[in-house]
């Protein structure tokens, strides 16, 4: 149950998508999101869907996994779609039927747009984490944000914090599982009772978890200091990112998508 969390999950692979420079992937993901919100026609969404589909095919990750990333958001998607449908206004589809007046052509259109937009959005952004290891992501973030160093922003420290936080998600999930089992073995009950009782039942998990998080933080800090870690100044990198030809291609294809979307917006 608790182990099923898939936030930031990474599926190792050797595909073109995996080998893209992580910086390219971050930039193109942002670009893709912007494009999605610029789309105003169904054909535009088709273009974006084709773009997404080719990425999925190139990456070698199964459709089942991709669908799984959308599933937890099903409720939000339906919710947004329904609200857009109800409050859109415009010409009703069944003008004769009184109680169906709220159902309008505009409403259905907007609901469909919203649903497709969210699905494509979630697919695209989760694909970035699916094909990029957390370490590479934070490394790329650091590299992309490095101009901010000029205004004395602690870019390296921030990215190190992110790396550590990501690194400890599975560890803490594991730990939670262990503590839960240990308290269950002493008869703790997390499943029955009203909301207050359940909240109170969490104390035997949260206290040990918090304590162990602090303990780990302290141990890690000591270990880092023992290896002479003193921030980012003068630190060299194990992995140095290079823009390759494939990054150029990825950007060209993405620009093509933008061009197509703008063209379709203007023409239709």
């Amino acid at each position: 149950m608790i182990k099923d969390i898939t936030i930031g999950q990474y599926f190792p692979g050797e595909s073109v998508i995996h080998r893209l420079d992580p910086r390219t992937k971050i930039l193109l993901t942002i670009f893709y999101v912007v494009v999605l919100f610029a789309i105003q026609t169904m054909w535009g969404f088709l273009a974006a869907a084709v773009y997404m589909l080719s990425i999925i095919l190139l990456s070698g990750i199964s459709f089942k996994t991709v669908l799984k990333s959308v599933k937890p958001l099903a409720f939000i998607i339906v919710f947004t779609a329904v609200f857009n449908m109800i409050y859109a206004g415009g010409t009703p589809i069944f003008a004769e039927v009184n109680w169906l007046k709220w159902l309008t052509y505009d409403g259905v259109r907007r609901a469909a747009f919203m649903a497709i937009r969210i699905i494509l959005l979630v697919m695209g952004t989760s694909f970035m984490t699916y094909t990029t290891s957390p370490i590479m992501l934070t490394g790329a973030m650091e590299s992309l944000l490095s101009p901010l160093k000029l205004v004395k922003a602690p870019v390296h420290e921030l990215s190190m914090m992110m790396t550590i936080a990501l690194r400890f998600i599975p560890t803490l999930v594991d730990e939670t599982d262990k503590i839960m089992n240990a308290q269950k073995a002493r008869g703790a009950d997390f499943e029955t009772g009203n909301i207050f009782r359940r909240a109170k039942a969490l104390i035997p998990i949260l206290v040990p978890l918090l304590i162990s998080a602090f303990r780990r933080a302290e141990e890690l800090a000591d270990a880092m200091e023992c290896r002479c870690y003193n921030g980012g100044d003068g630190r060299t990198k194990y992995k140095i990112y290079h823009f390759a030809l494939r990054d150029l291609w990825a950007m060209l294809v993405s620009l093509l998508l933008l061009a197509a979307v703008i063209l379709l917006n203007v023409l239709l």
């Binding site: 503590i179 240990a182 269950k184 073995a185 008869g187 703790a188 035997p204 040990p208 304590i211």
Partner: peptide, 27 residues
């Protein structure tokens, strides 16, 4: 669960109460 008492590895990490008495009394 009360018939079969299970002590996991490193059980000290499951302590959470304010006093030793309260922690032993949890079960």
């Amino acid at each position: 669960r009360f018939k079969v008492g299970l002590v996991f590895q490193y059980p000290e990490y499951q302590l959470f109460e304010e006093t030793v008495y309260k922690d032993i009394a949890f079960g």
